[in-house]
Design a protein around this nucleic acid. Sequence first.
DNA 1: GTCTATAACGAGATAGAC
DNA 2: GTCTATCTCGTTATAGAC
Lengths: 231, 231
Amino acid sequence: MSTVRGARERARAEVTAAIKDEARRQLAAEGAARLSLRAVARELGMVSSALYRYFPSRDDLLTALIIDAYDAVGAAAEAAHARSDHRSGLACWVGVSAAVRTWALDHPHEYALIYGSPVPGYSAPQDTVGPASRTALTLIAVCREAYVSRGMALPLLPEQLAPEAQRMAADFAPDLPPAVVAALVAAWAQLVGLVSFEVFGQFHRVVEEREAFFSYAAAQLGVSVGLLGEV
Amino acid sequence: MSTVRGARERARAEVTAAIKDEARRQLAAEGAARLSLRAVARELGMVSSALYRYFPSRDDLLTALIIDAYDAVGAAAEAAHARSDHRSGLACWVGVSAAVRTWALDHPHEYALIYGSPVPGYSAPQDTVGPASRTALTLIAVCREAYVSRGMALPLLPEQLAPEAQRMAADFAPDLPPAVVAALVAAWAQLVGLVSFEVFGQFHRVVEEREAFFSYAAAQLGVSVGLLGEV
DNA sequence: GTCTATAACGAGATAGAC
DNA sequence: GTCTATCTCGTTATAGAC
């Protein structure tokens, strides 16, 4: 009985994976706005109504792709953190940043899905917030390590922003100084800006030495949050 | 004779503007990937083939919208520069940055068109590069003023990146130090990252005091390129 | 010369009956 | 699950009004 159920579940997981794979292919070809359950079904030799056994709606399929994408960058960031030199906070920071960039360049359409323009008519459900925060949490972890073991330079924080920074610190990293947390949030947005410019082609005929330039800018961001070490 | 031509040209300009207005409305509702010539024509009470007198193809309409959007942010940036306090480079920088942010928040879909995910199947022609550079050129102008009148702090530049920075400086601002130009390119991408996070909703439940936070982060970026002044 | 309208193509999406 | 009738789309050819 349990083997039957196991086989059934395995089959279901396989079909689910096949659907997501085909949907990702369409994402690349047509964009998220044009993702169509029917086209996915046709390509898989299924009938469109059969897909609804796996994803109740187009938006649910989109949600699954978004969660997968967030999880994939998050995993890449965590792996980079695990294998990086924990003696230098700045090296960790640059390593994690570079992992995000590499993943984005390898999966431009999934990157666009999570950090590009919102899909019109789609609003992300609560299920995405956990996976969405994995990468940012990794950068926070890098700072936490550096802070507790070797200390950090405290970034400047305008008085006016002190309450906001305290709130953010209480929400995301109560063990870090508010000035570091505020700088971290800004640096995370700025890091994604760097990656987006490269992935979306804005560096065409502007930056040629992409990898070196990114390392330079990422290190600069690491310094801006207070990480120490030679650039 | 010339009045006839004037009238014709005026009529043509009016229809062209109406088409673009309606297209922008569709951009907001459906997204760039779903922009449809037929729907635009229907909404204007025209027949789809008539649109081809004004835009030879759907992509040409898209191109026009993109150029308009680049010109609009560029104009907003230039206006902010013109009216800002030229005695403080940092104040100029923050003012121009804030103008970009304000325009983006007021025109989120046009912002997404130029700085969000690329439209699948569309590739921008050469005509867009001029308008596209207006905003960046304004930031360069801010730095140029500061550099010639009051000097700037030279940002760090890793040796490895020196040739690339020299090339960028030669291309975009031969009168500025390569270290400033390299930092400028990075800061511009990072600035767009900040704006994109806010416009695309990534600051939801993360940053509450959006305007104050942006000023803080933008000032930090100004400092990173070497502008002087109190934050 | 400048414009709009009619009609059509091939392709794809959609809804519903069976 | 299947089939069909009816939509949409971008684009073109053609004919005629001003």
